[in-house]
Amino acid sequence: MSISFDVVINSEDYSVDMNSGLDTLKGASEVTQQIATTLLVDKVPQKLTSDNKVRTTLKRSFKGSFGQVFSLEFYDEEAKKRFNKMGKSVFIELMSYFINEALFQNTLKLSKKATATLEKMGGELEENLLNQLRKSSLSHLHASPNKFNKDVSLRFRKSRVEQKVIATLNKETYKTLVPKTDRKKIQITASITRLNINTGNGRLLLKGKDETIAFGFPLQKHYRQLKVASKKIFSDNLHINNGQEKENWKTLNLVAHTLKTHDGKIIKYLLEGIENV
């Protein structure tokens, strides 16, 4: 049993620097195995070896920039059963979610089944996976964007003629892997647009802005220690705004500090307090 993927490195002459290209392929393999193992075995792999129950296999290369097909192979019956129960579409949804979440990027709204799978997974396992992805595998996947400014796409291959982009990596997404913490407290007015009830991470929209941005808490334990009434403020704000026109959204007055890229772009707000209460 296997699932087909490919990784495409943007290249006008169908060639790439070999060292960065190999690192990019390594990153694609690591990211895929780490997410699959976490979802299907309930364990974030620290090392990837030939003994892993879920492994990747190189297939053929192809033209169209520089493309390489690879597959995710299952060597464990329980992992196969869990994958079949989850379904291919949910697996791909969550794979895209985890990569983009690790890079503080916005993602499409998850289906009900994908959301239920994520909630069942629990906050600690998810946070461990995101930290592991940021640790090295996403850095490897960014080798070509970082060193040669060549965009990379990781895709699920539905067939030889139809592919679905899981994530797109570039010079800008690489900057999110080495953020700086700015501990200066600031006040923001924002609406909650997405919330993970297990981790307290999500997306918010600043008043007067058009693009959402990631938010969370300085440490996951800070969210777990919040009183139920405080947590409910975030979920209620999300619930109230669902289905409303954006100009009618309710806002929260929040105190936060930030994570920034080295060129000063804010990529995440770390919430310290709610002024509405």
Score class of each variant (00 low, 15 high):
V7A: 03
V8T: 10
V8C: 11
E12H: 15
S15V: 12
V16G: 04
V16Y: 06
D17I: 13
M18R: 15
N19T: 12
G21D: 06
L25A: 06
G27Q: 03
G27N: 01
G27Y: 09
E30W: 07
V31S: 01
T32K: 02
A36W: 00
T37L: 06
L40F: 01
V44Q: 06
K53Y: 06
V54R: 01
R55W: 06
R60A: 10
S61A: 12
S65W: 14
Q68Y: 10
Q68K: 15
V69N: 13
F70H: 08
F70A: 01
L72D: 05
E73F: 02
E77F: 15
K80L: 08
K80I: 09
K80T: 06
F83R: 05
K85H: 13
S89H: 14
V90I: 15
E93C: 06
L94D: 07
L94K: 12
M95K: 07
S96W: 07
N100H: 12
E101T: 15
Q105E: 13
Q105I: 03
N106T: 15
L108V: 10
L110I: 11
K113D: 02
T115P: 10
T117F: 03
T117P: 03
T117W: 06
E119M: 13
E119Y: 13
K120E: 15
G123V: 14
E126N: 11
E127D: 13
L129V: 09
N131L: 13
Q132W: 03
Q132T: 14
L133K: 01
S137R: 02
S137T: 08
S137K: 01
L138T: 02
S139T: 08
H142T: 07
S144I: 07
S144E: 10
K150R: 12
V152N: 02
S153M: 13
S153A: 10
K158I: 03
K158P: 04
I166S: 06
A167L: 06
V178K: 14
V178P: 00
K185D: 09
I186C: 05
T189M: 03
A190V: 12
N198L: 10
N201P: 02
R203I: 01
G208C: 00
K209V: 00
D210T: 05
T212S: 01
I213P: 00
P218G: 04
L219P: 00
L219E: 08
L219D: 08
Q220D: 07
H222W: 05
Q225P: 01
L226N: 03
K227L: 09
A229W: 14
A229D: 13
K231D: 02
I233Y: 04
S235R: 04
S235Y: 03
L238P: 00
H239P: 05
N242L: 07
K246E: 09
N248Y: 11
W249R: 00
W249E: 00
T258C: 05
K260E: 14
I266H: 00
Y269E: 13
G273F: 11
I274F: 08
E275C: 09
V277E: 14
V277G: 04
